[in-house]
């Protein structure tokens, strides 16, 4: 189990997975903007909660939990740093308000991680590449992107094989001082790089053999079309943005403590 599993695409079918990456991208951008706009706890908490139904609709609760757990360390660090710096420099604030501000910053960070996690968990690299392509980015670049993503698990597996093989020959990776440890990785990196080069040559050969570059107007098997759900998401994002701008200018946001007491 690793933190990255909280961001790695999982192929399941859900209404969120079927959304156009461009719509989701707009949503993530809006969420970012709004999260940065506020530094009070209530609106940030609302942002956090808005996304929970999306997580459940996408059926990625477990992976999402993982990304949350993975970011917990950073969240705590952010909380601590904020708390300390506000305590020592802000002077005349009450401790509760300092506490609340620090919590708000932490929640902002969590909201950002959460939206990233949702985006990457539910967007296949294939459709992401397609979205890039349809946004006018040259095909070669998009192809390089999807192929790179495609070979990440293959290379990871290969690296593990090489590590095991070198360990079996007596290589100790986790020994010695810092420089020594870096040196230990050389016998792993060299075969890995050589293999990667050989692999890329074979891939190039295959591509040539499948008429790569035969015509300028290449077709694409898939096309992305904005559907009703995508429009709804875009509409919702814009609405969220407008409301947030309005609120941040015209409405006084009470602190959580003042509401509770």
């Amino acid at each position: 189990m690793s933190v990255f599993d909280g961001f790695k695409f999982r192929s399941i079918s859900s209404p969120i997975h079927q959304l156009d990456p461009r719509a989701k991208f707009i949503y993530v951008c809006v969420l970012f903007t709004v999260a940065v706009m506020f530094n009070n706890i209530i609106p940030l908490l609302i942002l956090f909660l808005i996304q929970l139904p999306i997580v459940f609709m996408a059926k990625v609760q477990r992976e999402w939990m993982r990304s949350m757990k993975g970011s917990a360390v950073f969240a705590i660090m952010i909380f601590a740093v904020n708390l300390l710096s506000l305590y020592f420099y802000a002077g005349h604030e009450t401790f509760t308000s300092i506490l609340e501000r620090s919590l708000a910053m932490t929640i902002r960070f969590i909201v950002l991680v959460q939206s990233f996690s949702i985006f990457f968990l539910t967007t296949s690299p294939d459709t992401l590449g397609l979205a890039l392509e349809q946004s006018g980015i040259p095909y070669e670049l998009c192809f390089a992107f999807t192929t790179a993503v495609r070979f990440v698990p293959v290379l990871a597996e290969e690296a593990q094989t090489i590590i095991d093989a070198q360990k079996a020959r007596g290589l100790e990776i986790e020994s010695g001082n810092f420089l020594r440890r870096i040196r230990n990785y050389i016998p792993i990196l060299i075969p890995l790089i050589v293999n990667a080069i050989r692999r890329s040559l074979e891939l190039a050969e295959t591509m040539e053999s499948r008429a790569w570059g035969a015509c300028k107007n290449r077709t694409n098997l898939y096309v992305l079309k904005i559907k009703t759900n995508d429009l709804l998401l875009i509409l919702f994002s814009l609405l969220l943005l407008t409301v947030s701008i309005y609120v941040s200018i015209n409405v006084y946001i009470p602190s959580l403590t003042s509401l509770l007491i």
């Binding site: 591509m207 035969a214 290449r218 077709t219 694409n220 098997l221």
Partner: peptide
């Protein structure tokens, strides 16, 4: 689909 896409064959 890759080869056919390269050749510009209709979807």
């Amino acid at each position: 689909a890759f080869g056919l896409e390269n050749l510009g064959v209709p979807r």
